[in-house]
Simulated scan of single mutants.
Amino acid sequence: MLTGELVRLRALEPSDAEALYRWNEDPEVGRWMINEYPLSLAQVTEHCAQRRHNTYGDLSLCVETLAERRAIGLVSLTGAEPESGRADLDVYLGEAEFRGGGYGTDAVRVLCRYGFDAMRLHGISLWVVAENTAAYHVYRKLGFVEEGRKRESFRRDGRWHDEILMSVLEGELVEPS
């Protein structure tokens, strides 16, 4: 198991479908995400049941609380290739009461550590909407640095928003003090 101070990361199970469906219906969860078209619970359940196994290039894990073993979100590393030593990170916490309590920070740290140690990645990148200041703060705290910006590339609430490209390299990940 991949464990941190507050969370453990595990493979997604078909039984996670109901939580995924509920999280995707939460406007706060989807606010800064590029969402697919709305899916029914049956479609999400089918997707979970037919999901391919995790691979080097496509790793998605459920975030669980360490104490209660309660599913609270998802993290993933995608697009990894041994030749480049790089992958893209996605993360979201679906359970509102766990946002802002260090769970997201711990989940990203655990996944990045796994990417650097087990997958032998050299760099992990992500895009964050500039107005998503809470996520931006978490990434900075973990050692991610700003590499660039796509201007007005994300539309939400009738407005265009910039996206910031951030990355952390092997050896730059900030561990807990």
Rank of each mutant, 00 (worst) to 15 (best):
S125N: 10
V7D: 00
F154Y: 10
Y37V: 11
A80N: 01
P82F: 03
L121P: 08
W23A: 02
M166K: 00
Y136H: 15
G85T: 12
T65C: 05
G4H: 02
E46K: 15
R70N: 08
G94N: 02
D58S: 11
K150S: 11
E175C: 07
G101F: 08
A17H: 02
R8D: 07
G57M: 03
R113A: 08
A96H: 13
R159P: 00
M1K: 06
E5N: 13
Q50C: 15
L20C: 05
L173P: 00
K141P: 11
V168F: 13
L126T: 01
R69C: 08
E13W: 09
W160H: 14
R99A: 07
W23K: 03
K150Y: 13
I72K: 00
D162I: 08
R51C: 09
T55D: 06
A130N: 10
A49F: 09
I124T: 02
G4S: 08
L169N: 07
E46I: 12
C62Q: 07
L9A: 04
V44M: 04
G171V: 03
F154D: 06
S15K: 05
M119G: 07
D16F: 07
A87S: 13
I72Q: 00
W160N: 13
E175H: 11
T3I: 10
M166P: 00
W23Q: 04
D90R: 14
S177C: 09
R151F: 14
D26L: 08
R31G: 03
V138F: 03
L20A: 01
R99F: 00
V110M: 03
E81S: 13
V145E: 11
P176C: 10
N132R: 12
R69W: 05
L41H: 10
E97H: 08
N24Y: 11
E163R: 06
R22P: 00
E146I: 02
G123A: 15
E170W: 09
V138P: 01
V145S: 12
D58R: 03
P38H: 01
A80M: 04
A11P: 11
L12D: 02
V29K: 05
R69Y: 05
D157I: 01
G94V: 02
T105E: 14
A17D: 09
V129N: 02
S84P: 00
M1N: 06
A67T: 15
C112F: 13
R151W: 14
E152N: 11
M1V: 09
G102V: 05
H53N: 13
T45L: 09
P176V: 10
I124A: 03
F154C: 04
N54Q: 13
E64V: 12
E81L: 14
L2C: 07
G94M: 01
N54G: 11
E170P: 04
L173Y: 02
V75L: 02
D117Y: 12
I164F: 08
E152V: 07
R156M: 07
A71Q: 06
V138T: 10
E64S: 09
R120Y: 11
T3C: 10
S153Y: 08
T78K: 11
L121E: 02
T105H: 04
R22W: 10
M119E: 02
V44L: 03
